[in-house]
């Protein structure tokens, strides 16, 4: 402090020289944040903004791979995309929402336990939560295939306990197999994105002041009411972050439905994958990508608004 003020206090120092001494310093300070932003901005421009523009223009092209694609401004492709694949779009949103709700149901108690009760086991448990990341997404999903496969102990146990009958009744499976079903796809999505749910939940529950829960109990709130009125609202930022981190990638996922599903469980990511890489209908694939993007952004915007995140800070 003292060294900064010293030149200004000095009686001999003329006002002009003081001014010229501080201005460059101030200018430099103003520039620094932008300089620091530059690499990130550049990255976003090259790998996000430019591809988005390319994708948008590609969706409005016509032609074929052999003859090349020409920009014609054909907006009709969007209508085509929606009318042909609305079912897969709706299904993707439905599966992603189911997986998000399941991940929340499984993740919340776990995150609560790790944050509030685990004591010295906290770090070990957190490592276990992220341990699946040590293997690739694909391998994990393939492992899932093996676990749920016919004749495996999970499938056998499900059959002997008549869980398969229940799943069939709920129309989550189509026969007494677990694999190649809606059930397997949603299971896979839930499992793969669970850590993205648990970590933000953990972060907000870890900050929860136990004395507030104690105070709620002191003010006649039963443990259940204390959870509803204190713990849950205070953990909402984590719930919002966790559900977004689960829902958004799950809605666009194509590996789970491809490896664990059947022809009736095709998700939109799978369609886009096929259109881009096998059918080579680039405009349709690009249009579907955009539809999915707009759909997700709209749903997220409505959700965030409903959750009232501005009040959560």
């Amino acid at each position: 402090m003292a060294s900064v003020h010293a030149p200004q206090v000095e009686p001999q120092a003329p006002a002009l020289s003081t001014g010229s001494a501080t201005t460059p310093a101030r200018r430099r300070r103003n520039v620094v944040p932008y300089v620091l932003l530059l690499p990130g901005m550049l990255w976003l421009v090259v790998f996000f903004v430019v591809p988005m523009i390319t994708l948008a223009s590609q969706s409005l092209q016509e032609g074929s791979v052999d003859q090349g694609y020409v920009f014609t401004g054909n907006v009709g492709v969007y209508g085509e995309a929606l009318s042909q694949y609305w079912e897969q779009l709706v299904r993707s949103i439905g599966y992603a929402a189911s997986a998000t709700v399941l991940a929340l149901l499984f993740g919340y108690p776990l995150a609560y336990f790790i944050a509030q009760k685990a004591g010295r086991w906290k770090n070990i448990l957190l490592v276990l939560v992220i341990a699946p990341f040590f293997t690739s997404f694909l391998i994990r999903t393939l492992a899932r295939q093996t676990i749920l496969s016919d004749g495996g102990w999970v499938a056998t146990a499900a059959k002997t306990t008549h869980v398969t009958d229940l799943l069939q009744l709920l129309r989550l499976t189509e026969n007494d197999r677990l694999m190649a079903s809606k059930f397997a796809v949603i299971c896979g999505l839930t499992y793969n994105f669970l850590p993205f749910m648990i970590l933000p939940l953990y972060a907000s529950l870890e900050r929860l002041d136990g004395r507030l829960v104690e105070a709620a109990g002191d003010l006649y709130a039963s443990p259940r009411e204390a959870f509803r009125h204190v713990t849950w609202p205070l953990s909402l930022p984590g719930v919002v972050a966790g559900t977004l981190l689960t829902f958004i990638p799950a809605a666009g996922d194509f590996i789970n439905s491809k490896l664990l599903g059947n022809t009736n469980t095709v998700m939109i990511g799978q369609v886009i994958d096929a259109q881009f890489l096998r059918v080579l209908n680039y405009p349709l694939a690009a249009a579907l990508s955009f539809v999915l993007l707009v759909l997700i952004v709209t749903l997220v915007a409505v959700y965030v608004r409903r959750a009232g995140t501005e009040e959560l800070v």
Partner: peptide
Amino acid sequence: NTVFQSYALFPH
């Protein structure tokens, strides 16, 4: 009822 040292007011 208790008046806590930290007050423990509900921030939300």
